[in-house]
Design a protein around this nucleic acid. Structure first.
Length: 547
DNA sequence: TTTAGGG
DNA sequence: CCCTAAA
């Protein structure tokens, strides 16, 4: 809770940045103090943090680890990172490319390592990464005897030490916290020369339980500042949000932000698996980073309910290409869909062999927020941009998700492979268990659903599922219902759109949603009248239609 | 277990 | 998509 609150300070109090940042820094110390009960030097400062915490708490509402609330987490992350950066200005690690490199390298290594514990390469890399990290901090020697604990955690991805992480959803992805804090530590120790060796260690140690996402500033930017303008502001005033003219590092980031935010919407749901590559990643990242226009970002979503987390790593330089190709594919796939219902879209791009594009629901959230409730769900059915796979059903709905992601079997639709993307397949193997359990709805599926509803009406989702989706085990009755719900919304939105014919809205909407075929819309609307979804009588009683 | 409804 | 409540 402490961390969270502290972050909030950074988030909401731009005007008081300095002050807040100071407190932020103090905060870290305080944590250490609390956790390890030494680091006496910060006692005094710790006091002044207290009131701050108190007032900032109300601002932030639920961060409960729900995947649908990514924004909260993002805010949080941002606050953290931003705070640090601003706090230390020129000394910031990101200021120099070298540092940047190291930072990302370490981060990547860490993430990969813990993500794919079985990945030997990753293990090696992380070892090296840690070494470098330590050396770089110039504390290697001093820490040598102390770092056993943190390093051990790193290697084994142990997240047991989350006793001090009450704030975040209790999900146990120590990795995030670790990565994040690693950076933080570097920054910290480099800037505050007086920092005790032990402090570093402690940070690593107990932060490992904190579920702090690391992520590129981009999301942050979007989240924190102009959610509304998401698209427009891109070229206009990319740095407006960073009103606090910071310093050298900002411009670079800002440019990245611009680009990323621009194409963000198109990337959603292009999901893959966590990036197993670690040595490649390192190399790549170095090169790319040297470019200084490239960001490697890792977005992690930890959802305690999902029981799994997904990693996204995307390469800035390639995003453009991939995006475009994706779009093209969308068009092609629309046609192909009729042939291959359950096929998955592959990225023909050679880049995809190394890259893992994956967007999370928060993209959607961003959009929705920006456009004021735009149900783009249904719209996407028309595009069948599906690269998603089933994922760890271990906790969700085991029975209903029979496709236990066994590394080898790439699920039922193995037959429908068109692009013949071996690379992807290879990757899926590695991180099969990291898959996000989401599957795009294809147009044909939507049609089936509509047919089913026309036949059975709403309220009999199980029947519909059994009869029309018997082959697709990944669709549960609930999914069908949800989809229908979304279709209703989507169709109504599109209807309105047609009515109003507002170009402005149209512009935005088209970005947000691929229009469903009109015929489909019509059917949906028709069905909506025939089978009103909330099947309640005027009196409020639920009607279970009997057949 | 299935539906409904909310997040 | 996920979760919970209610039936």
């Amino acid at each position: 809770m402490n961390e969270k609150s502290c972050i909030q300070c950074c988030l909401f109090g731009n005007d008081q940045e300095e002050n807040l940042n100071k407190k932020f820094a103090t905060m870290k110390c305080q944590r250490v103090k609390v956790d390890e009960s030494f680091v006496p030097s910060v006692e005094g400062k710790a006091v002044e943090v207290q009131p701050l915490l108190a007032e900032s708490k109300p601002d932030h509402t639920s961060i409960d680890g729900d995947a649908w609330k990514h924004l909260d987490i993002e805010d949080f992350s941002y606050g953290f990172e931003y705070g640090l950066k601003r706090n230390y200005g020129g000394l910031d690690c990101n200021t120099t490319q070298g540092q940047d490199e190291l930072e990302f390298g370490v981060l990547d290594g860490l993430l990969d390592e813990v993500d794919e514990v079985d990945d030997i390469h990753a293990a090696n890399d992380i070892s090296r990464a840690c070494e470098e990290f330590l050396l770089d901090v110039e504390l290697a020697e001093k820490i040598s005897d102390l770092d056993c604990a943190p390093l051990g955690r790193l290697h084994f991805g142990d997240s047991s030490s989350e006793s001090q992480s009450p704030g975040f959803s209790g999900s146990s992805n120590g990795v995030h916290g670790l990565s994040e804090s690693s950076i933080a530590v570097v920054t910290d120790s480099e800037c505050k020369i007086g920092v005790e060796n032990k402090t570093v260690k402690c940070e690593l140690n107990d932060s490992s339980g904190d579920n702090w996402d690391y992520q590129a500033p981009e999301n942050v930017f979007t989240t924190t500042h102009d959610l509304e303008n998401l698209d427009e502001v891109d070229d206009a005033k990319p740095e407006s949000g960073m009103s606090s003219d910071d310093n050298a590092k900002k411009p670079v980031q800002a440019s990245n932000l611009r680009q990323k935010r621009f194409r963000k919407p198109t990337l959603r749901y292009i999901e893959e698996f966590s990036v197993p590559k670690s040595r490649h990643a390192m190399e790549r990242q170095k090169n790319l980073t040297a470019d200084s226009r490239v960001i490697s970002l890792t977005i992690r979503s930890h959802d305690e309910h999902l029981g799994g987390s997904v990693t996204l790593t995307k390469e800035e330089s390639l995003s453009e290409i991939i995006t475009q190709e994706t779009l093209d594919d969308d068009e092609k796939l629309s046609d192909l869909k009729s042939k291959c219902i359950n096929r998955r879209q592959k990225f023909p791009s050679p880049a995809s062999k190394d890259k893992c594009l994956k967007t999370e629901s928060h993209n959607e959230l961003n959009l929705v927020r920006g456009f004021k409730s735009v149900p783009r769900e249904g719209s996407f059915t028309g595009t069948s941009t599906q690269a998603s796979f089933e994922s760890c059903p271990q906790r969700g709905r085991p029975k209903k998700r029979p496709y236990v992601p066994v590394p080898e079997s790439d699920n039922e639709d193995a037959a429908s492979e068109s692009e013949g993307d071996n690379a992807k397949r290879r990757k899926s193997k590695k991180s099969a268990d990291r898959r996000k359990h989401q599957r795009m709805w294809t147009l044909s599926e939507v049609m089936k659903l509509i047919d089913g509803i026309a036949q059975y009406g709403t309220g009999r989702w199980t029947d519909i599922k059994k009869l029309l989706f018997s082959s697709s085990a990944y669709r549960t009755p609930v999914d069908l219902r949800d989809k229908w719900r979304n279709l209703l919304r989507a169709s109504s939105v599109q209807k309105q759109k047609l009515k109003q014919n507002k170009k402005e809205v149209d512009q935005k909407l088209k970005h947000a949603m691929r229009p469903l075929p009109k015929s489909v819309i019509c059917r949906i609307l028709e069905l909506a009248t025939v089978h009103p979804y909330p099947r309640f009588t005027p009196g409020g009683r639920y009607i279970r239609r009997k057949n």
